[in-house]
């Protein structure tokens, strides 16, 4: 009797902890979703008296949404493509070929990965001015890819590390050379790595705010992040319906892609660190 009473108390105290956590973490998101389908939205949390999809319809007809979406897609797909191609190419020699200073190099990549981008944003801007990359997607994509590469190289290398060298050796015995072995045996086995680094690169570019803020300054190059920022930055003309619907629409791809990448999240977060 005593035991079950004790565990009931424990259960209750657990829920007592969950409830504020749930209010804190889910409350704000529920406001966003509820306001986006409310015919009379505001900053207060409220159940819509009248549910409507007009806020979403209004997006398509009345704003630069299509332009922003196109720009965000260009950024994300471009960054994903550049990152995946460069990381795939580099991963094989990083994993298989011994060269002097390799350990230091892998360390340097970790350092580059944890470097705050704010600290180098001034030279990145100056460099972009010199290379005529301001207001170009090429510039933003190259910078975002460079930011994404250190972690991508680590993840890709670990995927190649896990491919047994014996598979390649038997291919060499069957007459493949190093390159054809790489193309026929290794690349196909790297596809999970390609998927993970691609997803991470897409998500990073899709959600990024700092690089567009610095590089994509002209309204025609705004991705959704900049469009949204400018829209709610305009004081006094806060259109809750428009902004909440846009926010939901902008978040959906991120949420869906994270669901796909879920099993690799921790691997990506701790690349290069102590094995847990």
């Amino acid at each position: 009797m005593h035991r079950s009473g004790n565990s009931l108390l424990l259960r209750l105290s657990e829920y007592g902890f969950y409830l504020p956590i749930l209010v804190f973490f889910f409350g704000p998101i529920s406001w966003l979703v509820l306001a986006s389908i409310n015919s009379d939205p505001g900053s207060a949390w409220q159940i819509p008296e009248q549910v409507t999809l007009n806020n979403y319809l209004q997006l398509v007809t009345e704003s630069d949404l299509l332009l922003w979406m196109g720009n965000s897609t260009t950024l994300a797909v471009g960054t994903m493509t550049v990152t995946v191609i460069l990381a795939t190419l580099a991963a094989y020699p990083l994993s298989r070929v011994p060269f002097p200073g390799k350990g230091v190099f892998m360390y340097a990549l970790l350092l580059a990965r944890v470097m705050p981008i704010t600290a180098v944003i001034i030279p990145i801007f100056s460099l972009s001015v010199q290379l005529n990359l301001v207001n170009t997607f090429t510039g933003a994509i190259l910078i975002l890819s460079a930011m994404q590469l250190p972690i991508s190289l680590w993840i890709m290398k670990s995927f190649v590390d896990s491919i047994p060298i014996e598979l390649e050796e038997s291919a060499w015995l069957d007459g493949c050379n190093r390159l054809t072995g790489l193309i026929r045996i290794v690349f196909p086995l790297m596809s999970p790595g390609v998927a993970v680094t691609g997803l991470f690169a897409f998500l990073a570019a899709w959600g990024d705010f700092l690089i567009p803020l610095i590089i994509l300054r002209s309204p025609t190059t705004f991705p959704i992040a900049m469009g949204l920022y400018r829209a709610f930055g305009d004081q006094g003309s806060v259109d809750f319906g428009f902004l909440t619907a846009l926010s939901v629409l902008y978040s959906v791809p991120s949420i869906l892609l994270y669901l796909f990448a879920r099993q690799y999240l921790v691997k990506g977060m701790t690349a290069g660190s102590v094995k847990m």
Binding site: P28, D208, A225, L228, S251, I255
Partner: peptide, 9 residues
């Protein structure tokens, strides 16, 4: 969810 949505949202 709070972690995966874009920063500006």
């Amino acid at each position: 969810l709070a972690w995966v949505i874009p920063e500006i949202v």
